[in-house]
């Protein structure tokens, strides 16, 4: 993809003025990158037609640093929303894309972000159909914030709701936890440590579709445990369903380097953010087949059943520890803070 270089090194307030500079930025960087019949109308919005019920999800992305090992804020903004739409049991189709840019962002960086957005959108087979670009004064943002809203058609066989979760259902994870959060952490100012940990940001929509094609209503629930980590999502589910959740520490998939980084920084991987991870809660009778199907896909190659829904300890998540003890897994309170020693 060739984006014509603007006559500026960095974005300034003029690019958000709505005048010629804005037009220049839109034409030379945004419209020509995402060119499609909807966007090429250059209208205030787009008109789209759906044949089935639609799922809508919105998310804002404020990650720092904006470039990290394994990705950048751009692909995160696509994958995050694509995955949220998919978690509703839908096939993502369209995205809106809005930027809040702090003046001074390098044009080169912005271009790299746009390219990543384009690539991620193409990979997920979604189209950017409307958007917005604002520029704020230095100090009033953090380089760039992105908001995306996703629209998807609900899969005809899907029935995803906490109402469907019942005692005995199995909880299955597609991959290893805590990778994204630790990749970001390893590059945060003041915390830089050398590691090969890369973010697991990726689109999960095709794996979700495969699962729904095959298992339909026996899949009771999907959720991607992004911010707050696995523990926060499980705690929320336990509260919603009025039953308990039991998980097994020795089943939790976690890559060795990620586990070691968590140990060093004093962080609990259960509370660390994920990106390319989702959990599904399914009929016990299909659990093995679900794991098998997932493992055939690169995005589910580490799939594993981590626990089940129980009648006991209603509203709570309990984890059987490595040594056979039990502990409550509570939701994240505030930010997870590194311990002193």
């Amino acid at each position: 993809m060739d984006i014509q270089k603007l006559g500026y090194d960095s974005i300034n307030l003029g690019h958000g003025s709505g005048g010629l500079m804005t037009r220049d930025l839109l034409d030379n960087m945004i419209f020509n990158t995402f060119s499609n019949p909807f966007l090429n109308q250059k209208h205030d919005g787009s008109i789209v037609k759906f044949n089935n019920p639609i799922a809508i999800s919105t998310d804002s992305f404020v990650v720092s640093p904006i470039f990290f090992k394994g990705g950048n804020i751009g692909e995160l903004a696509v994958n995050g929303t694509v995955n949220d739409v998919a978690m509703c049991g839908a096939i993502p189709k369209y995205l809106s894309l809005a930027f809040i840019i702090e003046e001074g962002l390098k044009i080169n960086e912005f271009r790299d972000i746009l390219n990543s957005i384009k690539k991620a959108a193409d990979t997920s087979q979604v189209q950017i159909i409307t958007g917005d670009t604002k520029v704020v004064e230095r100090g009033k943002g953090d380089k760039i914030f992105i908001n995306t809203t996703g629209f998807g058609e609900v899969h005809p066989k899907a029935n995803i709701s906490t109402d469907n979760i019942k005692v005995g259902d199995k909880i299955i994870l597609n991959g290893q936890i805590a990778q994204h959060g630790m990749a970001i952490m390893s590059q945060r100012q003041g915390l830089e440590f050398e590691s090969d940990i890369i973010s697991d940001t990726t689109n999960l929509n095709f794996l979700i579709k495969d699962l729904l094609d095959r298992f339909g209503k026996d899949i009771h629930f999907f959720r991607d445990p992004t911010r707050g980590g696995l523990s926060s999502v499980l705690s929320e589910i336990a509260t919603d369903i009025n039953n308990g959740i039991l998980i097994f520490e020795n089943k939790l998939p976690i890559e060795k380097q990620v586990a070691a980084a968590c140990e060093i920084l004093g962080l609990d991987p259960l509370y660390v953010a994920n990106e390319g991870v989702f959990l599904t809660i399914v009929e016990a009778s299909i659990a093995d087949e679900v794991v098998d199907l997932m493992r055939k896909d690169d995005k589910g190659k580490n799939a594993v059943c981590i626990g089940e829904i129980t009648k006991d300890h209603s509203g709570k998540v309990v984890m059987n520890s490595h040594i056979g003890g039990k502990r409550i897994v509570s939701p994240l309170m505030g930010e997870q803070l590194p311990r002193i020693c």
């Binding site: 300890h313 709570k316 309990v318 502990r327 409550i328 509570s330 311990r339 002193i340």
Partner: peptide, 19 residues
């Protein structure tokens, strides 16, 4: 602090006791 006795009980254990 997660090292504090009260937080440790709150997070990991006391909810079990109350059950």
């Amino acid at each position: 602090s997660s090292e504090g006795a009260c937080a440790a009980y709150y997070h990991f254990s006391n909810n079990l006791i109350s059950l």
